[in-house]
Design a protein around this nucleic acid. Sequence first.
DNA 1: GTTGACTCCGTACTTTGGTACAGGGTCTAG
DNA 2: CTAGACCCTGTACCAAAGTACGGAGTCAAC
Lengths: 134, 134
Amino acid sequence: MSSEITIGTLARSAGVGVETVRYYQRRGLLPTAGTKKGAFRVYGDPELARLRFIRRAQALGFKLDEIASLLALDEETDRESARALARTKIADVEERIRQLQSVHSALQELVSCCEHTEAPAPCPILRTLGGEAD
Amino acid sequence: MSSEITIGTLARSAGVGVETVRYYQRRGLLPTAGTKKGAFRVYGDPELARLRFIRRAQALGFKLDEIASLLALDEETDRESARALARTKIADVEERIRQLQSVHSALQELVSCCEHTEAPAPCPILRTLGGEAD
DNA sequence: GTTGACTCCGTACTTTGGTACAGGGTCTAG
DNA sequence: CTAGACCCTGTACCAAAGTACGGAGTCAAC
């Protein structure tokens, strides 16, 4: 990896667009100030690593604000903080899964009911949504 | 239920705000034209029922555009369409649950790894996000 | 009549994570 | 030198589902 790449190359190396990198810079997640080569800003391994960190953290469900907190942590001294953030995210994910499972069950019931009745009985899905079911 | 309620009462009866009702009206989900009592629009059971339909459908994970489709269906003649929409939503929910379960597993591994190592070893969560883990 | 709650209309704003311009400048291969 | 790709800056826009005004008018109890 060359140590002096411009923003387009940096973005492509992390699988994002230039606009996204600029957005992260505006959000303070990536540095704006730095080395320049003429009028163009150039970036190196540290910036690429940081950008990839952001993407990996997003893939794990962290939001940008949460990622900012993770980025502020130090590998050597902040084990507890990192673990706490991860645990919080786990709890969020578990709660969301529960909600979705509840929704799933309700939907399944409606479809199953629909499959066990026939026209000319009215649609149980629509009747339930309409508040007409029993 | 009085057959001539104003928008505030309608909204409260369905547990939403006036602005939300107006928003649904703008979106075409609820009627704008209708009976007036002086300068104020008044609503009745059909409008309240429709508003509750929207909320129930949202609770089942349908988006407003999808709800518009549901609202356009007829209980007597559109059983298949309703069932198809519900099935699609079920598939969406199942996919989302899978994604979240994958995220959950990855997070659990990281936290577990963190729990089985101690300082002064650097934080495995941050190392993994940083791309430094093996 | 007065006043306060409410309604109407139209426009703007919020959240989150982008994405797209416009206008002007820079860089580099040919 | 030229031309095209790219960079920079700042502003606007998008999706989805609301929410909040401002300004003006209405309604009903007192």
